[in-house]
């Protein structure tokens, strides 16, 4: 900023300094842009050079595999309903893994988030500790926990469930505690003044305020967890992902089954996304009084 109080200010000098500032700004954003483009291009080339197949070659036969699957599935279209029936239990398992882990994760996150919020925590000295615990729970990828638990517990849905619930606790705990920070403390003070315990203060004073937002985040998490549950199945934790892996490694001849499973997974994800986003809309826009 030019010094306005000094006597030497003329419209010209203001224009000049403004243009100079603009120039500098443009130069900086230009440099940032160039660096960014360089990073993208060199990163892309680096990744491409370490890849099994080439990028342009892959691009040209990108649709080979999907079209193979689709054509084989189409030629055996009459068998598709039977496949849907066969793999329906696996789909239910995948959805169950996601639902249970979301539920357990949300319940744990409820407690941990209240313990991690300033003004609400039962033990204020432990706020930092609980937050670090949540950070770590969020940072550990679910696949790591799933694979370790598969080693100890054997394959099946439980390792995936625990792994996703662990991560969900960390992720929701952080979001919940952000919601809690905006909660009105007056009901809590009121309850405190009549001698309510901490649990009662939270149950009656805080949770009714924050529940809609919590529920909305939990539904969003459920959408994410269905995908995670399918991926973990792929590495051996049961459900549709596991069946999908078997069908794919079998290769040609069982593409109709793979196609059926692709379709089931796709439809499930789309349906769950639609329902959950409709519910979330109602939760956050439907009753405006609950959150200011």
């Amino acid at each position: 900023m030019a010094d306005i109080t000094s006597s030497g200010v003329t419209p010209q000098s203001i224009t000049e300094s403004y243009l100079q500032e603009i120039k500098r700004k443009r130069l900086y954003s230009g440099i940032t842009l160039v660096v960014f483009i360089l990073l993208m291009v060199s990163g892309f080339n680096l990744a491409a050079s370490r890849n099994g197949g080439s990028f342009w070659g892959g691009l040209s036969n990108f649709f080979d595999y999907p079209s193979e699957v689709v054509s084989e599935a189409a030629s055996k279209a009459s068998e598709l309903p039977a496949h849907f029936v066969t793999y329906f239990p696996a789909l239910v398992e995948t959805v169950n893994i996601a639902a249970v882990s979301t539920l357990i994760g949300a319940l744990l996150a409820t407690v941990l988030s209240l313990l991690a919020t300033r003004g609400l925590a039962r033990w204020p000295w432990a706020i930092g500790l609980v937050r670090r615990v949540l950070d770590i729970m969020r940072a550990v990828p679910d696949i790591v926990i799933a694979l370790i638990l598969i080693f100890i517990l054997g394959g099946g849905p439980v390792p995936a469930m625990i792994a996703i619930a662990f991560h969900t606790t960390g992720a929701l705990g952080k979001l919940f505690s952000e919601v809690n920070e905006n909660a009105d403390l007056k009901p809590v003070d009121g309850l405190k003044s009549v001698g309510a315990t901490w649990t009662q203060q939270m149950l009656l004073g805080v949770i009714p305020q924050v529940a809609p937002n919590w529920l909305s985040y939990t539904l969003l998490r459920f959408e994410i967890n269905i995908r995670a549950s399918a991926i973990l199945g792929f590495v051996g934790a049961g459900g549709l992902g596991y069946e999908l892996k078997n069908a794919i490694s079998w290769g040609q001849g069982r593409y109709d089954e793979a196609g059926a499973m692709f379709l089931m997974l796709f439809l499930t994800i789309v349906i769950v996304d639609q329902i959950s986003s409709a519910m979330r809309n109602r939760l956050t826009h439907g009753d405006g009084g609950l959150h200011a």
Binding site: F44, A47, A48, R50, N51, G52, G53, S54, F55, G58, L59, N61, F62, D64, Y65, P66, R227, A230, I231, F234, G241, L244, I248, F262, L265, F266, I269, V270, D273
Partner: peptide, 28 residues
């Protein structure tokens, strides 16, 4: 947008691995 999101990272990963082979580019 809905389709791309609905197909899910797992299925994309499988399809992309077929086309581009194994490696970091496929993951990206």
């Amino acid at each position: 947008f809905d389709f791309v999101r609905g197909v899910d990272a797992l299925i994309w990963t499988i399809i992309l691995t077929r086309a581009f082979g194994l490696g970091p580019l496929t993951g990206a």
